[in-house]
């Protein structure tokens, strides 16, 4: 608790270009809070003012510099920077670790970047498709790619503005060569949208799951692999099945896995044309269609060359 306030005061001065001694901050805060029982926010203000006077700084200098600079995603190119970004949540991924509250992809008009909201930050959940200002987030590099970390000192504020997201759109044709078992008719936590197993959310405990339909799979063209998620809209377009008809099928067969078997039959090994944004292992599906006929021109061309 105390350490956080010490660090916050130190970093406010640091981002204005001044180094102050943490021990000195702690000693003064301790005196006011524990000896004089001054409310914490009053103590913080008082200590901040003390150092402003010491350094002969006007408070507005500190206020102006307090926020980390607002940058575009394409400008993020080195780790360890405190920045502010205005982004839209493009996709949420399943958390890889207990220490991570949410992980996913955020974007602005210059590009996309992975974001990690650490559980310790105590921040409320963000939602796919909504736009936010992430203030005071720290840039980091993980396996050669840039990401941003949302920690205790960061702020997340939802905004009305609909941020446009740039993406490197690609189009591929390939076969759906794998379908993961956590596909088909699934349930999600109504609070945080996580996929549930046995109606238990790791964060919100036992909840009434909300039904959703998806296929997590791999599209492969013999040269590259792309991990894809086909959502309800994609699946309805391809197979005609939606959440309602999937629920009906599960009820009639008394078996939720019958939905996955049905979808597998229609989709496994089929050739698909997908346009979307490539991000590392993932291809974020924008449009997906079956290949419905043989390209006879290509067939003739191959026969000429061979």
């Amino acid at each position: 608790m105390m350490d956080d306030h010490v660090r916050r005061i130190r970093s406010r001065f640091e981002s204005a270009g001044y180094q102050i001694d943490e021990d000195e901050i702690r000693r003064r805060l301790n005196l006011l809070i524990n000896e004089f029982k001054v409310p914490v926010n009053e103590a913080v203000r008082s200590v901040t003012n003390y150092f402003l006077k010491e350094l002969d700084l006007s408070p507005d200098k500190l206020v102006a510099k307090r926020e980390s600079p607002e940058v575009k995603i394409s400008e993020i190119d080195e780790p360890g920077r405190w920045v502010t970004v205005r982004v839209k949540i493009v996709q949420l991924w399943e958390s890889e670790s207990e220490n991570i509250s949410q992980v996913g992809l955020a974007g602005d008009e210059t590009g996309t970047i992975k974001f990690v909201i650490w559980r310790k930050s105590g921040k409320p959940s963000v939602e796919e498709g909504k736009s936010y200002v992430f203030s005071n987030v720290v840039t980091d590099s993980f396996m050669g790619r840039m990401q941003i970390n949302i920690n205790k000192l960061s702020e997340i504020q939802e905004i009305e503005e609909d941020i446009q997201v740039a993406s490197s759109q690609i189009e591929i044709v390939g076969a759906l060569v794998a379908i993961q078992s956590n596909s088909g008719l699934i349930t999600r936590c109504p609070e945080c949208n996580r996929v549930l197993s046995k109606n238990i959310c790791p964060e919100h405990g036992k909840v009434e799951g909300v039904y959703d339909l998806r296929i997590k799979g791999v599209v492969d063209n013999g040269e590259s692999v792309f991990e894809v998620i086909l959502n309800e809209e994609n699946l309805k377009h391809l197979t005609g099945m939606d959440v309602e008809s999937a629920k009906k099928m599960a009820e009639e067969t008394l078996d939720r896995s019958s939905v996955l078997d049905y979808l597998k039959n229609l989709l496994f090994g089929r050739y698909l044309k997908i346009s979307g944004a490539r991000l590392g292992r993932y291809l974020l599906v924008n449009q997906v269609d079956f290949i419905t006929s043989v390209d006879t021109e290509e067939l003739e061309k191959l026969l000429e060359v061979v």
Partner: peptide, 22 residues
């Protein structure tokens, strides 16, 4: 994994495999 398929997918596979073999 193995699953039922159709003649269209077979044709697409042969052409794709021909192209990559060539």
């Amino acid at each position: 994994e193995i699953s039922a398929s159709d003649s269209l997918s077979r044709d697409l596979w042969v052409i794709e495999t021909a192209r990559q073999t060539l």
